[in-house]
């Protein structure tokens, strides 16, 4: 099925949870925050949060800034 991850379309298997996605992207969970359809997903839910069809995901982290 289809989701949007940081603005880009992406195919994932049905039933994929947040932690699956993060590991497939080589992202360590503690360095990012995940927003799904503008709601923040709590880190302790990463392993049970099933991504819905057409989910708009934002994966955010700190970058350099003043």
């Amino acid at each position: 099925m289809n989701i949007f991850c940081n603005g880009k379309e992406r195919q994932i298997a049905e039933g994929t949870v947040v932690s699956d996605l993060l590991s497939s992207l080589n992202l360590s969970p503690e360095t990012v925050v995940v927003e799904c359809n503008t709601m923040i997903v709590k880190p302790d839910e990463y392993s049970k949060f099933v991504l819905p069809e057409d989910a708009k995901l934002e994966l955010i982290r700190f970058v350099g800034g003043g």
Binding site: N6, L27, L59, I60, R61, F62, G64, G66
Partner: peptide, 19 residues
């Protein structure tokens, strides 16, 4: 020190200022 927030660059997953 200040830091900003941006989308992760999915092409460069290790680019993390916190590390």
């Amino acid at each position: 020190i200040t830091v900003a927030l941006r989308r992760v660059d999915l092409a460069d997953p290790d680019d993390d200022i916190m590390s």
